[in-house]
């Protein structure tokens, strides 16, 4: 249990730091409460997406929980991203209904990359369901390749969407950080597979720990919503 709390605290800390840098590093002012909330909420989704490339569902050395815990963590984080993206889309359309007209090309490229990312996310969410997974992909290997390919495309489209918004990411240092983090996130799952597996010394993974994935994701979700609310209130005070 203590390892679960440590993991949740670490993710919450990283998410908070990521959001604070995204919001304040470029020195941009607040626009309007709901708009800022929706936009910063979008960065929460970006953080959760980055996190999924590091917690890919493969068991890690620590915490020494059963494999299903890591699978659940990956799965629930995906649902959290879906929720955050829905909040991002509804919030921004609520604050500015005319954005609806910019979805169709060629008015605003930023909107089209956003739509593309949303479609990729929806596709990933559907084809990764156990029932669909068996129907669409012939075996686990094909699924793994296609899942990684689609997720990589999603990460690129999301990064491009955040960069094209050209507001809170306007500083060159932030743009390069975003590119660097995206490249690192894309490389990590490939590197992890390439590295040799280390033999464990008599330690056994704890059973019946998959349920602990939920509190970790709930903590991340709370931070992912609470920090944007506080930042929006601070910017528009």
């Amino acid at each position: 249990m203590s390892e679960c709390i440590t993991l949740a605290a670490l993710l919450a800390l990283l998410c908070t730091a990521f959001l604070l840098v995204c919001v304040f590093a470029a020195g941009q002012p607040g626009i309007a409460g709901l708009w800022d909330l929706a936009m910063i909420g979008g960065y929460s989704a970006v953080f959760a997406l980055f996190q999924m490339f590091f917690l890919t569902g493969r068991p890690l050395d620590r915490p020494l929980y059963e494999g299903r815990f890591f699978l659940r963590l990956h799965e629930y984080t995906a649902y959290l991203i879906l929720l955050l993206v829905i909040a991002h889309v509804i919030g921004s359309l609520w604050a500015e209904p005319l954005l609806w007209r910019d979805i169709w090309p060629p008015v605003l490229p930023v909107m089209q990359t956003g739509v593309l990312a949303s479609l990729l996310l929806a596709t990933l969410a559907v084809v990764s369901q156990p029932r669909w997974k068996l129907a669409v992909f012939r075996n686990a290997r094909i699924f793994r390749y296609c899942h990684y390919g689609l997720a990589a495309a999603l990460l690129c489209a999301t990064g491009l969407h955040a960069w094209q918004a050209d507001f809170r990411m306007a500083a060159p240092a932030l743009t390069f950080s975003l590119i660097g983090m995206s490249a690192l996130a894309l490389a990590v799952p490939l590197l992890v597979r390439a590295l040799p597996v280390q033999a464990r010394r008599g330690e056994k993974r704890l059973r019946n720990t998959s349920g602990l994935a939920m509190p970790v994701v709930v903590t991340l979700g709370c931070i992912g919503l609470l920090v944007p609310i506080l930042c929006a209130m601070w910017l528009d005070r």
Binding site: P105, P106, P109, Q112, T113, L116, L120, R138, N139, R141, I142, R144, Y145, C146, Y148, G149, L150, A152, A153, C156, A157, L160, Q164
Partner: peptide, 27 residues
């Protein structure tokens, strides 16, 4: 299977790349 996976990834990458190019170029 490996070839199929690579082909699927290439098709997905091509579609996404094409979509992004079309979007960024402003048609």
């Amino acid at each position: 299977n490996g070839r199929l996976s690579i082909a699927a990834v290439c098709v997905a990458a091509g579609l996404v790349g094409g979509g992004i190019w079309w979007s960024v170029s402003g048609a």
